[in-house]
């Protein structure tokens, strides 16, 4: 393996590869992922830059970046990567690491939305939009955006005042509890 590039600090790339199950180290910076990224204009770090910073072990900069939370999971990068890297899965992994390690997340709206959504599923077995949005607004402090749309959405039956619970809501709570136990083992 004499002609293989050896990085001085490989712990981050190894860890991200283990958690995401995809060969991040194979990235050769062709930038195809960044070129097709729909949220590129809003990103502080493009996806190809994220790959490179993983190689370089720049954990703090990555986990505190805005870009990992702007990824819309559209899978264009994953589909087009010539090295078969599941770039979108790497973004997922970095978000989970940021939450796990209590990184200073610059714009926490995405993380608070995820928590509010999953909290709703845990309670009802299905998403109860109005409850989920109320929790999101309280958590994010973003109280007023879209409030003007509620009357229209109510009138059009697009949002309901009461949850539509699944008959398997208790089973879902057990699934959440056991999934948490499994996540601790990773």
């Amino acid at each position: 393996m004499a002609d293989t590039l050896q990085w001085e600090n490989t712990s981050l790339v190894r860890e991200v590869e283990r958690l995401s199950g995809t060969p991040v180290g194979a990235c050769f910076q062709c930038h195809k992922c960044s070129t097709g990224c729909p949220v590129g204009p809003e990103m502080d770090l493009l996806s190809s830059q994220v790959m490179r910073m993983i190689h370089l072990g720049q954990e703090q900069e990555l986990l505190e970046s805005r870009g990992i939370w702007l990824c819309a999971s559209c899978e264009a990068c994953t589909t087009r990567c010539p090295m078969g890297i599941d770039v979108a899965a790497v973004m997922d992994t970095l978000r989970m690491m940021a939450v796990d390690r209590k990184a200073a997340i610059p714009d926490a709206r995405g993380e608070k939305f995820n928590r509010s959504f999953l909290g709703s599923v845990r309670r009802h077995g299905r998403v109860f939009e109005l409850g989920m949005l109320a929790f999101y607004k309280i958590r994010s402090g973003d109280l007023f955006s879209d409030v003007g749309k509620f009357p229209q959405m109510l009138a059009k039956g697009k949002i309901s005042l009461l949850p539509k619970r699944s008959g398997a809501a208790k089973q879902v709570r057990d699934v959440f509890r056991r999934a948490e136990e499994e996540e601790k083992k990773r």
Binding site: L19, S73, V172
Partner: peptide, 16 residues
């Protein structure tokens, strides 16, 4: 008694 698939919030929060 189908339940939510977890959608994007699940796959960005918990692989399990």
């Amino acid at each position: 008694d189908w339940v939510c698939c977890g959608s994007t919030p699940a796959h960005v929060s918990s692989a399990s």
